[in-house]
Design a protein around this nucleic acid. Sequence first.
DNA 1: CGACTCTTTGATCCTGATCAACACCGGTGG
DNA 2: CCACCGGTGTTGATCAGGATCAAAGAGTCG
Lengths: 235, 235
Amino acid sequence: MSTASALASQFTAARRPSICCNASCRHAAVCEATQGGDPTLLDMRQVVERVGPFSEGDRLVQPDAPHRAAFAVLSGLAKTVGDGRVLAFHLPGELFALDVPRTQTHSASVVAVGKTWFCRFPRTATDALCEHSEAIAAHLRALRRRERAFTRRATDGSAAERVKSFLLELLDRRRRVEGIGSGFIPLPMSRDDIGSYLGMSAATVTRMLARLRSEGSIAIRADGVDVLQEASLRG
Amino acid sequence: MSTASALASQFTAARRPSICCNASCRHAAVCEATQGGDPTLLDMRQVVERVGPFSEGDRLVQPDAPHRAAFAVLSGLAKTVGDGRVLAFHLPGELFALDVPRTQTHSASVVAVGKTWFCRFPRTATDALCEHSEAIAAHLRALRRRERAFTRRATDGSAAERVKSFLLELLDRRRRVEGIGSGFIPLPMSRDDIGSYLGMSAATVTRMLARLRSEGSIAIRADGVDVLQEASLRG
DNA sequence: CGACTCTTTGATCCTGATCAACACCGGTGG
DNA sequence: CCACCGGTGTTGATCAGGATCAAAGAGTCG
């Protein structure tokens, strides 16, 4: 996917937003923006635009571009990329691109992983909402803190430990937005992306997953992994 | 050195402070607190207490203890220790323990390396000075930022690179407080301390220094190293 | 002088990177 | 329908950087 076509796709998608955020959205229970329908946050639904579809490699935001909106993943997966490394993954329901309090610009790229839809929250609209609703302002502040916490941590510990805590992190995040669910963790991103995020080679990611499988902790599927013994991952 | 004797030594030293900060102090030109006699900072001299001597392993501040003072190294060397690792070294003339804007407590230990004297700046006094002098307030803010920058960086790059940049960091800091001087870098701390700071074993520190010597970049002495070819360290 | 600690140096081991071969899969064109 | 193809994932072989362990200097302090 060339840069030109990635941008073309972005603009095509952005030009036909549709407003459709309400309780009947099949992701309503999941969405961080509205916190599963928290009444004090209902106004967030008035400002959202649904944008997409984006496909593999499309860039949603550019580094150093002015910060014009925050986004929530509606379906699919997104990654934040900076300094040639994957800095964060964004799961369905998660609000992101809240960074940039001072510079007023995005500090890194956000790229779609596979076919992805987003909900877009224009900056001007959310700023206005924050003005007259302390609940929304506090909610966005909390999410901004959380986004920082999800960004690539210092690479300490062995490769095995980092892979285990990566799986547990995804499992916990999926549960938080979707409620306690299956032990399945979709991994639509490439092994290279995982390795970049965890600071190791793709081959090592594969090897560590294979080791966890041989220990009986997980089962590996084409589109992700099944957690069979969560306790042994946490141990 | 047991904890009990370290504390005893601390209290013994703290009980006889002497006020003697003026232009004739043989470290006046060096001292960050007064910035070599900057007239707008002269009031700092009114609040300082000289404390010491501390000896190897004595603890100057305890983690989670209330933040009651900042310190400058008068002679010797100090290290900040947290999580079982050396987080920073403090050279003569450098002001430190300025941390703790929010928690109001120290976040880590400060420990003397060898026989060391300090200048102590009580928090209540410096707070009062900041009230009526914007110059002093700005000076302390700048030093606080600098202290954060000196704290253990993420361990990236090879062991050889980290040792080289460690030597250059000490060289630059010595020059900044003492003016352009010799190419000698005192290393009164143990190889273990250096290794802890740089995230490698003491044996590797020794080996990397030996390699630099064999390349002709430095000469190793009992109490430090002489930089012979600064350019090859920077390269 | 002797006990002790710290540094240096050698030998070995372990982790993970790198390189290469191969399997697998979805698409594309005959 | 099948052969082909490029990209991705898996697996094996090899390699390099440092950790670890051990033993031998070198101070240092009593």
